[in-house]
Amino acid sequence: MENFNANTQQNTSMQSMPQIPRMLPLKQVIHYTGLSSTTIYDMLDKKSNRYDPTFPIQVKLSKGRVAWVESEVSGWIEGKIAARFH
């Protein structure tokens, strides 16, 4: 009976924990989108003719290290899929 109570308490505390966003390194963004790193950075550059204001902006994690929020990349891809029918 004590194990059941301990498991119930653990499950309850895990459910109340905040969702931590998954961060994707450039290599995974390239994999998921099928875009090259040059294209991705061009899409983020307002001066580029490939600029896409809907593309997710990277998050600076540390000096020399950036990543993208997985849900934002996923949402961008889903938007592109939905837009093909319009």
Rank of each mutant, 00 (worst) to 15 (best):
K47Q: 14
D42V: 00
L61A: 04
S74R: 15
K47C: 15
Y41M: 07
S71L: 00
P53A: 02
G64C: 09
Y41P: 00
P56W: 08
I77E: 02
K63I: 00
W76K: 14
I40A: 09
D52H: 04
I57C: 07
D52L: 10
R50Q: 06
D45H: 12
W76M: 05
N49H: 14
L44K: 13
S71H: 04
F55G: 03
R50E: 02
N49P: 08
S48M: 05
W76Y: 15
K63C: 05
T54D: 09
I77T: 07
F55M: 10
R65P: 01
I77Q: 01
D52I: 00
M43K: 11
E72I: 09
P53Y: 03
Y51M: 05
L61Q: 14
T39S: 12
D42R: 04
T39V: 04
V69G: 01
W68M: 04
V69E: 15
L61S: 06
K47G: 15
G64Y: 10
D42I: 01
K63T: 07
M43Q: 11
G64H: 12
E78H: 13
K46C: 10
T54M: 09
P56R: 13
L61C: 10
K60P: 02
Q58S: 13
A67I: 07
A67T: 06
Y51C: 05
Y51L: 04
I57A: 11
V66G: 08
K46F: 04
P53H: 03
M43T: 01
K46R: 15
S74L: 12
K46I: 14
D42K: 09
N49L: 03
I40Q: 06
Q58C: 08
L44W: 09
E72N: 14
Y41A: 01
T39N: 08
F55I: 10
W76D: 08
G64T: 05
I77R: 00
S74K: 12
V69T: 00
V59Q: 13
P53I: 02
Y41T: 03
V73Y: 11
Y51S: 05
D45V: 09
N49Q: 04
E78Q: 14
E70K: 04
S48D: 09
E72S: 13
W76S: 09
K63H: 10
L61K: 15
T38W: 06
R50F: 02
S48P: 09
V73H: 08
Y41V: 00
V59L: 13
P56V: 08
Q58P: 05
V59M: 11
